[in-house]
Write a protein that binds this DNA or RNA. Structure first.
Length: 259
DNA sequence: ATGTCCCAACTTTTGGGA
């Protein structure tokens, strides 16, 4: 199964790029964040023409998450059913081809002294509560834009980010807490100490200067990790005309039998 | 210190957010 997460920064603005990327890369399951559409505007027909069923948790101007699948979509959930759902349309989950997929757009946090930073931490706590215990026979992938760089290796210059969100111990502790439940950061676990980024600011020529962060993650259960054949960031998708500021993260795996 | 992009609207310019 080829599972992909991609923050597209408006699916309206990005549709041609997404369509082309899907045709070229043929993912089985595509998780999208920041669709920035309401459900009426979401391109259900466009995905159907490509051979995908899609589900969307839309909002309008901000946020919005979706899952497109060509291996089935069942047991769809939109939000946690907790007060954190008031922070926007940021989570959609479904079972696709026997895999539990949780697609997340974690609140940015804005600044350390901003109320949204506290909401970001609470949202990550709600996600951990929603995930629950990850036992050995569970096939689960929690993916998306976490707006957290798990380690200093995951940012171009830790010193430049002092006092900013995305790198603070409380944020990183939340990602570590998800891993403590039984999830593994697939890109990190398959790439040793290689520095890889998934997001580069549009400003400052950041992409070409290598000023990026790895904030888009695929966290998966041991059962998924067992079958991983390839995991990578598609930097090419950040190039060219009208790119998103995020690159897709791709994990290709064979679903193994329960342990 | 902030050089871009995207969206909405009291919409053709501005402000919020990332």
């Amino acid at each position: 199964m080829k599972l992909v997460t991609w923050n597209v920064n408006s699916l309206t603005a990005r549709w041609e790029r997404v369509e082309e990327w899907v045709q070229r890369n043929e993912p089985d399951v595509l998780c999208l964040q920041e669709t920035k559409q309401d459900d009426a505007k979401f391109p259900f027909e466009g995905f159907a023409a490509l051979g995908y069923e899609a589900v969307h948790h839309g909002e309008g101007r901000w946020n919005g998450v979706a899952i497109a699948s060509r291996v089935g979509i069942d047991e769809v959930r939109r939000g946690f059913g907790t007060k954190e759902d008031a922070d926007g349309a940021r989570m959609i989950a479904a079972v696709c081809g026997g895999v539990e997929v949780v697609c997340c757009y974690v609140p940015n946090g804005r600044a350390l002294d901003d109320p949204f930073y506290v909401k970001k931490l609470a949202w990550l706590d709600a996600l951990a509560a929603d995930v629950g215990h990850v036992d050995a026979d569970r096939a689960l992938a929690v993916v998306g834009d976490f707006n957290v760089a798990p380690a200093d290796l995951d940012v171009w210059d830790p010193a430049a980010l002092e006092g900013s969100t995305h790198v603070t111990p409380p944020e990183r502790d939340r990602v570590a807490a998800l891993c403590a439940l039984g999830l593994v950061d697939v890109i990190r676990s398959t790439h040793g100490d290689e520095q890889l980024f998934t997001w580069w600011d549009y400003r400052n020529g950041a992409f070409h200067r290598g000023f990026g962060m790895r904030i888009d993650l695929v966290l998966c259960s041991a059962r998924i990790l067992d079958g991983v054949e390839r995991a990578y960031v598609d930097r090419e998708a950040r190039k060219g005309q009208k790119p998103s500021d995020h690159a897709p993260v791709v994990v290709d795996f064979k679903l193994t039998a329960p342990r």
